[in-house]
Amino acid sequence: MPPARLVIFTRYPEPGRAKTRLIPAIGAEGAAAVHRRLTEQTVAAARASGLAIEVRTTGAPHDRFADWLGHDLVFVDQGEGDLGERMQRASSPLPVLFIGSDLPDLRAGHLAEAAKLIESGRTVLGPAEDGGYWALGLTEAADYLFADMPWSTDEVFRLTAARLAERGIVPALLPTLSDCDTPEDLARWPALSPGTAQRSRG
């Protein structure tokens, strides 16, 4: 099995459009700063893992992403549609490992472990504390995982595992991680506070 492509989904940290559920608590600028820092941490972990990185983007032209995250990365537009449609488009060529960009506790070791499992032929899932998943690794086409999924609900992991089970696939499970979407989430990681995040930009 060839090495997995690591596909990261993110958006440009434009105030008012990034991490909108944090805006009531810390304002649009603060929410965008948190998103900026989380994405930068994700890309740093991805680089340290040694995997080939593809960043699926929305919210700005690729040159702005390159100026922000580095000109060594591959940038591809996410395109239209819900998350499932965008993931389905990004799933070829295989094998592939999908992750988001809002995981404060993500480390290179998590990605290296996932890649090793994928290269051994396993389907991989990383459970998220909110009932979704933070990672999905595929070795073969799995369009059935992307259609008619209630994204951003606590049913996503359960339904994904059930759809795999219907086809006799038992995924290898990665450690459970939590993403940072709400003010309650943000309280768990003080280093992501807006003031600290803003200072990292300077």
Score class of each variant (00 low, 15 high):
Thr20Tyr: 01
Gly137Arg: 05
Cys180Lys: 01
Ala141His: 12
Asp185Arg: 01
Thr160Ala: 15
Ala128Thr: 05
Glu80Pro: 08
Thr160Pro: 11
Pro95Tyr: 05
Ala128Met: 14
Gly195Phe: 03
Ala147Trp: 08
Tyr12Arg: 00
Tyr12Trp: 14
Arg163Glu: 12
Ser178Met: 11
Glu166Cys: 12
Asp102Ala: 11
Arg21Tyr: 08
Trp134Ile: 04
His62Thr: 13
Ala60Gln: 04
Ala141Gly: 06
Gly131Ile: 11
Ala165Gly: 14
Gln198Asp: 02
Val7Asn: 00
Ser101Asn: 13
Leu125His: 04
Leu103Val: 04
Ile53Ala: 02
Leu125Ala: 12
Ala31Glu: 03
Ser178Cys: 12
Val96Asp: 00
Ser91Asn: 06
Pro24Arg: 08
Tyr144Val: 09
Val156Pro: 04
Pro104Asp: 05
Arg188Ser: 12
Phe146His: 07
Thr176Gln: 15
Leu186Thr: 02
His35Gln: 05
Leu22Gln: 02
Glu119Ile: 09
Thr160Arg: 07
Gly100His: 07
Gln88Arg: 15
Arg36Ser: 04
Ser101Trp: 00
Gln78Trp: 03
Val74Phe: 02
Gln198Leu: 14
Leu164Ser: 12
Leu106Ala: 03
Arg21His: 14
Asp82Phe: 11
Thr182Ala: 06
Leu94Ser: 05
Pro183Asp: 11
Ala165Thr: 14
Ala197Glu: 01
Gln88Pro: 02
Ser91Cys: 10
Gln198Gly: 03
Arg86Gln: 10
Gly81Arg: 06
Leu136Trp: 02
Ala90Gly: 04
Ser120Cys: 13
Arg47Lys: 14
Leu164Trp: 05
Ser49Ile: 13
Arg37Phe: 01
Gly132Ser: 15
Phe146Ala: 04
Phe157Asn: 10
Gly79Ser: 12
Asp82Met: 06
Ala161Tyr: 11
Gln88Lys: 12
Arg36Thr: 04
Gln78Ala: 15
